[in-house]
Amino acid sequence: MARRWAAFAAAAAIPTLTVVLPILAFLTLSFFRVEDNQIVRDPNLGNYAEVFGNPTYRGTYLGSLLLCLQVAALTLLIGYPVAWRVWRQRGRVGALLLLLTVLPLFMSYIVKLYTLRSLLGLNGLLNQALVGLGVLEAPSKAFLYNQRAVLLTMTVVYLPFVILPVYLSLERIPHRLLEASTDLGASQWATFRHVVLPLSLPGTVAGALFAFVLALGDYITPQMVGGTSGFTFGRLIWSQFGLAYNWPLGAAMAAVLFLTALVVIVAGGSIARQGRV
């Protein structure tokens, strides 16, 4: 038995040092405060009172939750039909479509932001096309540097993270179940409604979860395409470690984000497990 524990201690040393202790360190820091650019080690809940008491911070937090819910809903609404259609497509075309939907997962995040931003800008192709088609009289500023631009960009960037898990859970449905449903006289819609949709629930939940958590922690997208009006909770945390220079407050905000993500992951995980085949 002692040997087993010694082996565990050896194996756990590195994850403890690089994952567990850093998380504990930042959680501890969230109870301290800053005075004259010095961290004062006097444990209290002041930072948490500030996060939830200050209307700006609270508003930013709630606004970000709403934004992430919208991102999750939109990516799911777009991603599910795409995954479903790719799954229905057999043969080489199907394989190619799958590759095309997976490939964006490998593309650099910062590169996607840059290309989307240049597309949405005042001189961007979207404006040029709309003016060229006569839809707009002059290029519009409506597509960039506002909350809508953040939502739109996050939806495009995080969409592939939803398509893949939905596709994989559709792939996992045994063919005989679909055949049985059809043999029993169910219409295609009935088969979809009562067989395909419930059995693809784990992937659907996982996809929505990915989109939500990724959007929640994102602080570069809001800055790149949101401008001054695209202020999110992630960006607020980031600014505490940069310009505002209040690490303990930033740590408290990050702790709130951490707990939110954890609750979402655990809740989503249990829903997904219940639906597993």
């Binding site: 087993r4 524990w5 082996a7 565990f8 194996a11 756990a12 994850p15 403890t16 690089t18 994952v19 567990v20 850093p22 998380i23 360190a25 930042f26 820091l29 958590v213 990724l214 929640l216 922690g217 994102d218 602080y219 992630g234 945390i237 980031w238 470690f241 690490w247 930033g250 740590a251 990050a254 984000l257 951490f258 993500a261 954890l262 992951i265």
Partner: peptide, 27 residues
Amino acid sequence: VGRQAMELTIYLPFLLPPIVTGLSLLV
């Protein structure tokens, strides 16, 4: 011993928002 705890700490930085992983290592 502690298989689940090991796996949890291995997967955690991948599941959490990167901002949390980044700033915890910074701190």
